[in-house]
């Protein structure tokens, strides 16, 4: 998304400067906008950067959050972060979770969008079913999923009744299956959003182009690959960035459904930070983890942005 914003800005400014006399006047004509963006900057940047600064300061302390005399420990908390095996596990889970959920959500989102643009009956009903999970808070849905994936839960019940009883297992109790369960809940929750964005983006593809392709004899799959997919490329890049940010921020679902367990199998940075800062009272260490999260997010943002931009230029 960031990639596109910058190219868009370029488009707003540069092509006009090349065309006629309007461009030269434009910078003069264009009123200054500092004051317009100021309130948003004061609130968001002010509050959030203040919090980052404060967190950075706390990350150098050995502090339980209440003691009046925290001791300064320099970079010791960061050294601890790098030595903490759970931190590395959390990073691994974040990467896996991002890749899997992004790919599946994208595939499902495009599929649903294409299907619902294909004049199926009762489209609104499907749309609502897909979007309701977006609306529901994880705090609400977590107990439902705990029940569904319990050993005597509905998921195993369905498996048994469709003749796959052999696959029934305690999904949330095993390190090997707990993370896939968490990922499937994430997919359940966010596919509606992906779908809506693709649905909207596909609405922008001109019908003439599609019809022309049909006249040329292109089938459904061919149309999807060579017209629809390129047409929604921007949305895909934006969603990749948003999913990556979402993966880094993951907290509610693993915290509420599996408590980061069993045996840290569903630990994410968010759950680790929460556990360290609040129940365990290692506020300094939690702050160091928070700063690591921010650094990772920035690296990732820059990486995705530059890659996205390169591709744009190639096109």
């Amino acid at each position: 998304m960031t990639a596109t914003t910058s190219t868009r800005t370029l488009r707003v400014g540069s092509p006009k400067q090349a065309g006629g006399d309007a461009p030269r006047k434009r910078p003069l004509l264009q009123p200054r906008g500092y004051l317009w963006i100021l309130p948003a900057l004061v609130l968001s940047v002010g509050l959030i950067y203040y919090c980052i600064g404060y967190t950075g300061y706390i990350s150098t302390l050995d502090w339980n959050g209440t003691a009046p005399d925290p001791t300064s420990v320099g970079a010791a908390n960061y050294v601890k972060v790098f030595q903490d095996p759970v931190f590395w596990e959390a990073i691994q889970h974040t990467i896996i979770s991002f890749l899997v959920t992004f790919v599946i959500q994208t595939a499902l989102g495009i599929l649903f969008a294409v299907l619902l643009h294909s004049k199926v009956r009762l489209g609104v009903v499907y749309k609502i079913v897909l979007f309701v999970p977006v609306v529901l808070a994880p705090a609400i849905t977590a107990p439902v999923f705990r029940q569904i994936f319990a050993y005597d839960g509905q998921f195993n019940w369905v498996l048994t009744h469709v003749g796959l009883g052999g696959l029934a297992q305690p999904w949330l109790a095993q390190s090997s299956t707990a993370l896939p369960v968490i990922m499937s809940i994430t997919i359940w929750q966010w596919t509606g959003m992906t779908f809506i964005l693709y649905y909207a983006a596909m609405g922008q593809i001109e019908t003439e182009v599609l019809e022309a392709a049909r006249i040329d004899g292109a089938g459904n799959i061919r149309t999807l690959v060579s017209i629809i997919w390129p047409g929604i490329r921007g949305t895909t890049i934006a969603l990749a960035t948003l999913s990556a940010i979402g993966a880094l921020k993951t907290f509610d679902i693993p915290y509420l459904v599996s408590m980061g367990g069993p045996n840290f199998a569903t630990e994410f940075l968010g759950t680790l930070i929460y556990r360290q800062s609040i129940p365990l009272g290692n506020v300094g260490y939690g702050a160091a983890l928070s700063i690591m999260l921010l650094v990772l997010a920035l690296i990732m943002g820059i990486f995705l942005n530059t890659r996205g931009r390169e591709k744009k230029e190639v096109r």
């Binding site: 319990a150 050993y151 305690p170 999904w171």
Partner: peptide
């Protein structure tokens, strides 16, 4: 019980 590790 089966699934003890996923139980609270």
């Amino acid at each position: 019980q089966t699934g003890a590790l996923g139980t609270q």
